[in-house]
Amino acid sequence: MITTIIINERTKAGRTLLELARLLATTNKGIEIQEESPYNPEFVAKIERIYDDYKSGKTKSITLDPNDIWGSLGLK
């Protein structure tokens, strides 16, 4: 039998219950925790691709003059 429990991690009781479930999952083979991301998977994939580009040096750095932002961007 599979039972789904929705836990609000913003409350003290929710955080306590989640920590207890995690503790039980590490000591008991009959309990499994599956956490779902609240983010859209396409959005997460896009952010991961951008981060990979950043790590590999495929990004462009722009230095802005705080006194002339538009001029720094070449838009003036």
Rank of each mutant, 00 (worst) to 15 (best):
I2S: 14
T3N: 12
T4K: 08
T4G: 08
T4N: 09
T4Y: 12
I6T: 15
I7S: 01
I7Y: 03
E9K: 10
E9T: 11
E9H: 08
R10L: 15
K12L: 11
K12R: 11
K12Y: 04
K12Q: 10
K12A: 15
G14L: 09
G14V: 10
G14T: 09
R15S: 14
R15H: 05
T16D: 14
L17G: 06
A21R: 03
A21H: 04
R22I: 08
L23T: 15
L23V: 14
L24W: 05
L24T: 09
A25P: 02
A25F: 06
T26C: 06
T26I: 10
T27W: 02
N28C: 05
N28G: 02
K29F: 05
G30E: 06
I31L: 07
E32F: 01
E32I: 02
I33Y: 00
I33T: 01
Q34K: 03
E35N: 01
E35G: 01
E35S: 02
E36W: 00
P38M: 03
P41Y: 04
E42K: 04
E42Y: 03
F43E: 07
F43Y: 10
F43H: 05
K46F: 05
K46A: 10
I47F: 04
I47N: 02
E48R: 13
E48P: 00
I50M: 07
I50K: 10
Y51F: 13
D52H: 13
K55I: 12
K55T: 05
S56M: 07
S56V: 05
S56D: 06
S56W: 01
G57H: 03
G57W: 01
K58V: 01
T59W: 03
T59L: 08
K60R: 03
S61E: 03
S61R: 07
I62P: 02
I62G: 05
I62R: 07
T63L: 14
T63N: 15
D65A: 14
P66V: 09
D68T: 03
D68W: 08
I69C: 13
I69W: 12
W70Q: 09
W70R: 10
W70Y: 08
G71A: 02
S72M: 12
G74V: 01
G74M: 11
K76H: 06
K76Y: 06
